[in-house]
Simulated scan of single mutants.
Amino acid sequence: MTTQTPGPFRGLFIAFEGGDGAGKSTQAAELAGALESRGLTVLRTREPGGTPIGEKLRSLVLDHGHGHIDAHTEALIFAASRAAHATQVLRPALERGEVVLTDRYVDSSVAYQGAGRHLGTEAVAGINDWATSGLQPDLTVLLDVDPADGRRRRTTGNAAEDRLESEADEFHARIRAAFLALAAARPQKYLVLAADLPVQELAVQILERVAALLALRQGSSA
């Protein structure tokens, strides 16, 4: 059963999703700068992480060297980090009227653990709906990246891959398909863009969509 989100919030909640190497952090930074130049208060955050306990859990689940982590444990670690993030960071910022930009949210768990680890997308979505008390983004920006291109991007300069990034391309292909399926099921809540477009072209398209949402939000509160 889906928990109803208290609200409405005065702020706007944007999630950036996509495979590893898609450029989510770059586009979140571009959007934050553009919105701040318009006088808006913007909170940038990330998952797993965003809180002191979340950052510890991030290290535990992404860094190599912690021994074997089975799929169920992995999914629950991500959900625990997200529960703290939603309660301690996301909801308070939205209640203050800020624009919240998060690098990854629930869709990542649905894609990585639900599809990538074969735990089932509905099961993982249900766990995270409970963990966040039903908090959903106003818009999810999905940067669609081919798994091979994503690996090339994230290993440029001999950068080390984390525990999930280093999984085989077949794992990342399942993740890509899951992200696209989520977007296709609720197209009004997603902006799907090819990650290999020029950075500034992506930034312009994202800002246009977010500006339209802000205008709609401001109009409805007038």
Rank of each mutant, 00 (worst) to 15 (best):
residue 85 H to G: 04
residue 204 V to S: 08
residue 107 D to R: 04
residue 27 Q to W: 08
residue 5 T to N: 12
residue 128 N to Q: 14
residue 77 I to W: 12
residue 168 A to K: 12
residue 63 D to K: 10
residue 107 D to S: 10
residue 52 P to H: 08
residue 77 I to K: 00
residue 118 H to T: 09
residue 117 R to E: 12
residue 156 T to G: 02
residue 105 Y to G: 00
residue 71 A to K: 13
residue 150 G to P: 05
residue 19 G to E: 09
residue 146 D to C: 10
residue 107 D to L: 04
residue 195 A to P: 06
residue 29 A to W: 00
residue 213 L to Y: 06
residue 106 V to F: 02
residue 41 T to R: 15
residue 206 I to M: 09
residue 182 L to A: 12
residue 8 P to Y: 08
residue 83 A to K: 08
residue 35 L to I: 06
residue 202 L to T: 03
residue 9 F to C: 02
residue 105 Y to F: 15
residue 150 G to W: 03
residue 167 E to D: 11
residue 168 A to C: 09
residue 194 A to F: 00
residue 214 L to T: 09
residue 198 P to A: 12
residue 203 A to E: 06
residue 82 R to Y: 08
residue 115 A to G: 07
residue 89 V to C: 11
residue 133 S to H: 15
residue 75 A to V: 04
residue 3 T to F: 08
residue 59 S to W: 03
residue 59 S to D: 14
residue 166 S to K: 10
residue 61 V to A: 13
residue 110 V to R: 10
residue 23 G to D: 07
residue 94 L to W: 10
residue 71 A to D: 15
residue 160 A to F: 03
residue 215 A to K: 11
residue 78 F to E: 00
residue 82 R to A: 09
residue 180 L to K: 11
residue 11 G to M: 04
residue 100 V to S: 06
residue 106 V to G: 01
residue 127 I to V: 15
residue 102 T to L: 06
residue 137 P to I: 03
residue 7 G to T: 13
residue 115 A to Y: 07
residue 191 L to Y: 06
residue 17 E to D: 11
residue 114 G to H: 08
residue 45 T to H: 07
